[in-house]
């Protein structure tokens, strides 16, 4: 099972290497990793998606790194979790309008259109992206690039108003 860990670390050279080296050394698997700035210029936020049952050890070992300030595990209901993806798909000019229309249901935007391909940009939670991919597969995916997951804990007071993702239509399996 995938777990999302959000680690607030000091913004110092090499801190990402420390984190990834520790994961490698301890044999913990990283599913995805994203790092970026925070409002405090002295801090960075690393979002790590990990597999495996050893969550307690992973969190403790992260804390053990001198540059780690705070570690939070975000359960599926506790965080706003997002990924961004670029997908290039085959696009017969006759189908172009149809594709753009169905993509818009997922709030996916065409960002590059060529003679025989369209590239869509989409962001959302992992399930949303995977549903979109399923749709695109019917046209033929040529290549794709996907970011690591980023996450923030939900604000408890406003939890009810947080959307699950961009409001999206589920694929009808038929």
């Amino acid at each position: 099972m995938n777990h999302v860990i959000s680690a607030l670390v000091e913004n110092k050279p090499g801190v990402l290497a420390r984190v990834s080296s520790m994961f490698a050394r301890r044999g913990f698997n990283i599913h995805s990793l994203a790092v970026g700035p925070t409002v405090d210029p002295n801090m960075s936020l690393i979002t790590i998606v990990v597999d495996g049952p050893e969550m307690e050890q992973i969190i403790k070992q992260l804390y053990k790194l001198v540059n780690t300030v705070k570690v939070t595990e975000l359960g599926p209901e506790e965080g706003v979790i997002r990924e961004i993806m670029l997908v290039r798909v085959n696009s017969d000019p006759t189908k172009r309008a149809e594709m753009i229309e169905s993509a818009s249901v997922f709030s996916a935007r065409p960002v590059d259109v060529g003679a025989a391909t369209i590239t869509f940009e989409i962001s959302g939670d992992p399930e949303h992206l995977s549903n979109f991919l399923e749709l695109m597969r019917t046209y033929g995916i040529i290549e794709l690039a996907q970011s690591g997951r980023i996450a923030l804990p939900k604000d408890r007071k406003t939890k009810r108003h947080t959307t699950a993702s961009t409001k999206s239509a589920r694929m009808d399996p038929s």
Partner: peptide
């Protein structure tokens, strides 16, 4: 003194 040892 090392929390990571506990439960390892």
């Amino acid at each position: 003194v090392d929390p990571a040892e506990i439960g390892k």
